[in-house]
Computed example of a mutant assay.
Amino acid sequence: MNYTVNGHATYCYTGGKAFDAAKPTVVFIHGVLNDHSVWILQSRWFANHGWNVLALDLPGHCKSDGPPPASVEDAAQFVLALLDAAGVQKAALVGHSFGSLIALETASRAPERVTHLALVGTAYPMTVSPALLDGALNDPQRAIAMVNTFSHSLLAPPPSSLGPGTWLYGSSRALMRRVLASNRDANVFHIGFKACNDYTNGEKAIEAVQCPVLFLLGDADQMTPPRATKALVAKARKSKVVTVHAGHSLMSEAPDEVLFALRDFVAAPA
């Protein structure tokens, strides 16, 4: 489904279901050099169990037009504009990595519009090493290889993910290369990493959030290790921490565990 947001076409995967304003809505927000497809299992499950699903491509990524957001704050304003364009008054937000910061900032800016906030593979501050920042700018293919090494704890996914025999490193690298190549005018890799690294509003943002917050973390995550969430967890008003056996790519390494955690969290009363 396409919406016009800030004058540009924005693509949202709906799990194959028509949007129904009478149903509750879940918005899925991807991370750097990803797109809506990283949520394929989770988004399809929610779409087939009574929810509207908006698994978006961020501006300038794959099927969405417009300039890629240069900051977490810009991306949060985009998400609010998307809710307006879709006619959604309230939604649950689920974000991974960069997307988790976007979801957090969105919930802080419009707490009355967010019923549940799920931060998957998150950290604050989300510091990016100088080597990765430089690589994303000057040698993206080398940086993609580095990110894949740091993001995975398994070589092959369990059955509910991409299927037996799939090489996680290879499929993730192919996705990242495709997303990078989808924008010939801007380096969405470096822009996204810099936005993560520059974000300084996390602790103030979590204090402004009014809804329940889920921290969904991977115990083998080298990109955003669980210990890096302590400041946010301590300041969240209504928080729950779920740790699964996975690296940073939680949705592909622990697909069922991520789905079940999101299902139980979002289905609970706010």
Rank of each mutant, 00 (worst) to 15 (best):
A270R: 04
A70R: 12
A205F: 09
H49F: 11
G218N: 03
Q210H: 14
L250R: 01
F193L: 11
E73R: 11
R184Q: 15
V209E: 05
A18E: 15
L83C: 08
V147D: 03
A267D: 14
H152E: 11
W45G: 03
F189C: 00
L262W: 03
F78W: 15
G170A: 11
A236K: 05
D185E: 14
A70F: 02
P159A: 14
E257Y: 03
Y169H: 10
H8T: 08
A228M: 13
N148Y: 01
A70D: 09
P157K: 09
V244A: 06
S71Q: 04
P140M: 10
A76L: 07
L217V: 06
K235V: 02
R178A: 12
L58G: 01
P158S: 13
K63T: 10
I102W: 01
V94F: 02
R177H: 08
Q210G: 12
L162T: 08
R113T: 03
R44A: 15
F265K: 10
G15H: 01
A205H: 00
E112V: 05
M176V: 01
Q42G: 00
M126N: 13
S129K: 14
T14N: 12
M223F: 08
V241Y: 00
A123G: 07
L262S: 01
Q77C: 13
P255M: 10
Y3S: 10
M126K: 04
Q141L: 07
A205C: 10
H49E: 14
F193H: 05
S43H: 06
T122P: 03
S43C: 00
A22E: 06
N34R: 04
Q141P: 02
K23F: 10
F215P: 06
M223K: 10
A270H: 00
G95P: 02
V88R: 02
H8V: 06
A254P: 00
F19K: 02
V79C: 01
H152L: 15
A92E: 04
S171V: 11
N138V: 00
A174L: 13
K194E: 14
H30E: 12
K204D: 15
A70M: 08
S71D: 04
L137V: 11
F46R: 09
